[in-house]
């Protein structure tokens, strides 16, 4: 039997050099998100351009209708520059888009950027007011549902929001029109806004479409808020708060809410993006001159520059809003904000 007793009490070297990412995790993560978003946007632009290019049907044939002789079609294609290679056209388009120039509409010949500017303003106006109502309402109702968990108010909130999310949005839209515009005559329909309208008039006009959108997005955000806070509520530090003698409302606001921010912000961002991007149906139902309707019209006549521009703007909104949500979630995490 050999003696194998060894003694050494030296600690291992721990002074390995720390990388930039370890020293500034927050800044690194945020920069990463920004870079990823830019990359994603670029990829989306390729997809949109390629996708539109691959669509069956052709502007020239649609435009000319029965008089589409091969010569006339070729002439129009040459006019629009469609005979040049796709890569050249892509980079031309991308270069313009980066500077805010989306080219001219094939159908009307007007500048796409100019037309979209007005439409986008309308869409954002509608989305903004829908968000201003729905986000605080959803978060507030979510907190209320937690406070009255499994009691009557919680159940009512749940049932109503579930019903709202289960109905198709056009159906909610028509119901609102029936009650408020037709029967009670206190709201305007169609909700078409003009440049000459004043601010108050505009608000009155968008009341019904905004209400429809609120109904559609409310339930999702409300239920996520409730679920996020409830999952935090079952953690040991909430018991700590209760055993410190804090009131239930104070415990929810001070101890539960900061830890529930990340999931809530994520679902809010998704829904905000939906308010901008997904309102096509609502705009059509209410004859509202927003981006959605503009895009639908452009698709029917194969007006590609408009379709591409709308697609890219929608994608940009989606990506930016989700990026903002990501960054807020990162900043809300104390482990990243205050590294060891």
């Amino acid at each position: 039997m050999t003696d194998t007793t060894e003694t050494s009490a030296l600690p291992p070297e721990t002074s390995q050099r720390r990388s930039l990412g370890e020293r500034f995790p927050l800044a690194t993560l945020i920069l990463q998100r920004l870079g990823l978003s830019a990359l994603l946007l670029f990829a989306v632009s390729v997809l949109i351009f390629g996708g539109v290019e691959a669509l069956p049907g052709d502007f020239a044939t649609t435009y000319l209708g029965q008089s589409a002789t091969p010569q006339a079609v070729a002439n129009i294609r040459a006019d629009l520059g469609l005979d040049r290679p796709i890569v050249t056209r892509y980079f031309e388009w991308l270069g313009g888009a980066v500077q805010g120039d989306f080219g001219n509409s094939w159908a009307s010949g007007n500048s796409v950027s100019e037309q979209i500017g007005r439409r986008l303003g309308n869409s954002l106006f509608l989305a903004f007011f829908a968000a201003v109502v729905s986000v605080p309402l959803a978060v507030g109702l979510g907190m209320l549902a937690v406070f009255y968990r499994d009691r009557v108010p919680d159940k009512i909130i749940n049932i109503v929001s579930l019903a709202a999310i289960s109905l198709p949005e056009f159906f909610i839209g028509y119901l609102l029109i029936l009650f408020f515009a037709v029967n009670m005559r206190i709201a305007t329909f169609p909700a078409t806004v003009y440049d000459s309208m004043g601010f108050i008039d505009r608000l009155q006009t968008i009341a019904l479409p905004a209400a429809t959108l609120v109904f559609v997005v409310l339930a999702h955000m409300m239920r996520m808020t409730r679920a996020a806070i409830l999952s935090v509520m079952s953690s040991a530090y909430m018991e700590s708060a209760e055993l410190k003698g804090l009131s239930a409302m104070r415990a929810i606001i001070k101890h539960a809410a900061p830890n529930a921010i990340a999931p809530i912000v994520n679902v809010v961002a998704l829904n905000l993006a939906y308010l901008v991007v997904g309102v096509v149906v609502v705009e059509v139902v209410f004859v509202y001159p927003g981006m959605g309707q503009y895009m639908v019209d452009a698709v029917t006549v194969r007006d590609m520059p408009v379709v591409q521009a709308c697609g890219l703007i929608f994608a940009a909104f989606y990506i930016i809003l989700n990026m903002v949500a990501d960054i807020i979630a990162i900043v809300a995490n104390p482990r990243l904000r205050h590294p060891r």
């Binding site: 530090y237 700590s240 055993l243 410190k244 003698g245 009131s247 101890h255 900061p258």
Partner: peptide
């Protein structure tokens, strides 16, 4: 009534302090 006692006259130390402290404060 019990709130005036908890955290003031009687306090509690949990097994896992790591879980019992709120990570956000």
């Amino acid at each position: 009534g019990i709130r005036t006692i908890r955290g003031a006259r009687v306090c509690y130390v949990a097994q896992s302090a790591a879980a019992a402290f709120n990570p956000a404060h």
